[in-house]
Write a protein that binds this DNA or RNA. Structure first.
Length: 757
DNA sequence: ACCATAGTGCTTTTT
DNA sequence: GCACTATGGT
């Protein structure tokens, strides 16, 4: 089992029982080491119940289990191998009482959470200009990820204090409705262990080895949860690569790795630096690039497979021509025998995929775009899930509002407003408030309640897939989508949902015959209560958790071999024979927004490092001098990352332009704005672009001038700051005294010119 | 209840 | 450029 490993991998796998940090470079066999370590531990006599393995994605967890069962003939079901969220969910279900949760608590995904916050803001008449739901959501999640409850947050300004209040209100709403968001799963599980000593001691004693994948992506709360769970008995085996930390914006804290090395591993670090993926030129380029980062633990990838081909670089005048060139080159690669799905086109932001798709489409090259909408996030699926949630818990107001009038059944906004008032008055759910409603609205709502009750009654008798079919039919969704011109796809997805439920029920062993019996899972009784809870969890409740925690595949169409299109973030962990990294322009990559963030540039550089190390045999770097973005043509200079790659590893296929002028001066002096695109705007004023600022414009019969005073029916009076475009494209930036600065289309906006300004 | 129009925003997003 | 939302009119 371990004979085929290299010495460092062997050392990692056979680490004695102590905290260990594995610095695993890209393509160094990280997953292999993790799974072999688990198998090795069990071979040494460790019980599978004493082992926990934590990942970030369901995919990684599945792969770990698959590989593990290939190494050892064991039944992996019931093992504590899963995502942070999955394992926390498990803990909370087992000990819902101690965690202060209802047994059937439901999990809100990000979209559900946002809807819940929108509802909260509306109910409390919060000014959504000052407190946009997205910002409130970000605030709440960020605080939870720091492990903070409202009372523990230090708020020094009124705005933050208000946000803390909203956090408090939101939390109360969640408690009332029996729902838990993603961050809450982690925080609750952490608090559960923190506040219940017997439970904590039980799990600390039980798990003697805890393995963590992608450790560089952990946030402070996850770090605290892990170390609390480990106590002073368990060994933490953390595997990660600080150079591939690209999720700071989601709360991942790269310093967790340093802290872990210092406080736990205490220098017990194994470096996996031999790379089995990429050829020498690619690795050397990547090493050189990442050496520009100061904040690293240090590591240098090497290979014994030779230098291979230099990294190719291409510069084109526009994004369209860049895309065209990429597609032509892909054709050549395919002709040379590259498999289509071994060719990946990567980009920094999703908006870039459009041009690429367009060119691929016209060339009839099959392609797959990753990162679109996922199965359980589709509108029709969410509708059915909302019905199912109401069946499981009719007090879930978010679900209620989603489907109470979908398909339409004569329950309008006014009725719901009134219903909401009653709910507030009696401090109850919308469902419970229905009896207070009178008249036609009362009748229609009564019918809806009857529908839910009747389905809930069926839920007791019907197997899950049959129940779902029943819901699709009785809710009227089937009829609705049948009558919809574009409903065919949606109907297909609904059928797919029934199939998913069938598979789920089979895999979970929750078929009718088994339901009610203790699962085959050899879970030792934690306490009598815990055990009872697990077996009593209905297939419906289990399926709903599954739907929230596993959003499903996010690739567009499965099917034949196709060229792979995705963001660099989405490409992490994957590898391809040929990789195109597109849009290597200042402002785009590194992204202009990142330059204003703390350590933002280093994060962008790590992103570039991830991108480079995806390629096995061939890597292309492409850039465009101009690019359509936000409806305007933008001009940019080449990315500084290109200049950080040594010439020895590059092969320019188009002439290399002179280095950008006085790059450092721009960066130092003006930060984000000045460097790439502003410089470009100056070129634009020299006559290249159509969207140059102007001092006067005639649209319709009106003559607009900068500084001119104008009046708008909604925004009131204001002053024109800038003018751009012409004809239909004509736009003005106007500063309104009351409403603030807006950008308006002059052709459409109802503006009146007034005196002064 | 439904559609048209206007206005807004817009990096990445494992759960 | 485009997709999403809010709102107002029919």
């Amino acid at each position: 089992m371990i004979d085929s490993l290299n010495p460092q991998q062997q050392q990692a796998v056979t680490q004695p029982a102590q905290h260990t940090l594995i610095l695993a470079g890209a393509g160094s066999g990280k997953t292999r080491v993790l799974t072999t370590r688990m198998a090795w531990l069990m071979q040494q006599g460790l019980s599978p119940y004493a082992l926990m393995a934590v990942t970030f994605t369901n995919k990684a967890a599945r792969e770990m289990l698959t590989r593990l069962s290939a190494l050892l003939p064991i039944d992996t079901r019931g093992m504590w191998v899963g995502t942070f969220h999955g394992l926390c969910n498990r803990l909370l279900r087992l000990h819902h009482q101690d965690a202060g949760l209802v047994q059937s608590f439901q999990i809100l995904d990000s979209a559900d959470q946002l809807a819940a916050i929108r509802r909260l803001l509306k109910a409390n008449n919060i000014d959504d200009e000052k407190y946009p739901a997205r910002d409130v959501q970000r605030f709440i999640n960020a605080e939870k990820e720091k492990g903070l409850r409202p009372h523990a947050i230090e708020a020094y300004d009124p705005h933050t204090r208000r946000l803390v209040e909203l956090y408090e209100l939101y939390q109360a709403q969640c408690e009332r409705e029996g729902v838990v968001d993603f961050a809450e799963l982690l925080l609750r599980a952490y608090e559960l262990l923190l506040h219940h000593a017997p439970l904590r001691q039980h799990y600390q004693q039980r798990f003697s080895h805890i393995l963590i994948d992608e450790f560089q992506d952990t946030n402070p709360l996850q770090y605290a949860w892990l170390t609390l769970l480990a106590g002073d008995q368990a060994c933490l085996f953390a595997v990660g690569d600080d150079d591939q930390s690209i999720y700071a914006f989601r709360g991942a804290d790269i310093s967790n790795m340093k802290c872990f090395e210092r406080d736990y591993a205490k220098g017990n670090v194994v470096r996996l630096e031999q790379n089995y993926r990429s050829s020498g030129h690619i690795l050397d380029a990547a090493n050189a690039l990442i050496s520009h980062n100061a904040d690293r633990l240090g590591k240098k990838l090497w290979t014994d497979s030779g230098q291979g081909e230099a990294v190719r670089v291409v510069e084109k005048p526009s994004d369209a021509l860049e895309a065209q060139w990429v597609v032509e080159e892909i054709k050549a690669l395919l002709k040379d025998g590259y498999a289509p799905d071994q060719v990946a086109v990567l980009y920094r932001s999703n908006a870039q995929s459009r041009v690429l798709e367009h060119q691929l489409f016209s060339s009839a090259i099959p392609y797959k775009v990753y990162g679109g909408q996922r199965f359980f996030e589709r509108q029709e699926i969410k509708h059915v899930l909302a019905y199912l949630r109401l069946i499981d818990n009719p007090n879930a107001d978010t679900s209620w509002l989603r489907v109470v009038n979908f398909p339409t059944r004569g329950i309008g906004a006014r009725s719901l407003e009134q219903l909401g008032d009653y709910a507030r008055q009696y401090n109850c759910s919308l469902y419970r408030a229905v009896p207070y409603m009178t008249g036609r609205a009362g009748t229609n709502l009564g019918k809806f309640v009857a529908l839910i009750n009747q389905l809930a009654a069926q839920a007791q008798m019907l197997p899950l897939p049959d129940l779902i079919e029943q819901v699709i039919h009785d809710s009227g969704l089937l009829e609705h989508y049948k009558n919809d011109r574009e409903g065919a796809d949606r109907l297909e997805n609904l059928q797919e949902l029934v199939n998913a439920a069938t598979v789920f029920v089979m895999e979970e062993g929750l078929t009718e015959e088994v339901a009610g019996r203790i699962p085959v899972s050899p879970e030792p009784a934690v306490d009598e209560n815990g055990m009872a809870v697990l077996s009593a969890m209905s297939p419906l409740a289990a399926f709903l958790s599954h739907a929230s925690l596993e959003a499903g595949d996010n690739q567009a169409q499965a099917g034949q071999a196709a060229v792979q299109l995705m963001t660099i973030h989405a490409a992490k962990g994957l590898e391809f024979d040929a990789v195109f990294i597109t849009g290597l322009e200042e402002g785009l990559f590194p992204h202009e927004n990142s330059l204003a963030e703390l350590n933002g540039l280093e994060e962008e550089r790590r992103l570039m490092y991830v991108a480079l190390t995806r390629g096995r045999r061939r890597v292309y770097l492409t850039l465009a001098q101009s690019r359509m973005l936000h409806g305007k043509t933008r001009y940019a200079t080449r990315s500084r990352f290109l200049d950080e790659l040594p010439d020895a590893h590059l092969k320019w296929l188009t002439p290399r332009q002179a280095a950008p002028v006085a790059q450092s001066a721009w960066v130092g002096g003006f930060g984000r704005e000045a460097h790439g695109w502003n410089q470009a705007r100056q070129r634009a004023t020299a006559g290249m672009a159509s969207t140059v600022a102007k001092s006067g414009l005639i649209v319709g019969d009106q003559h607009f001038r900068v500084g001119q005073g104008v009046a708008h029916p909604k925004f009131g009076e204001g002053t024109i700051l800038t003018l751009s475009g012409s004809g239909n494209e004509a736009q003005a930036q106007i500063h309104f005294r009351e409403a603030g600065t807006k950008t308006l289309a002059l052709g459409v906006a109802k503006l009146t010119i007034i005196a002064g300004g």
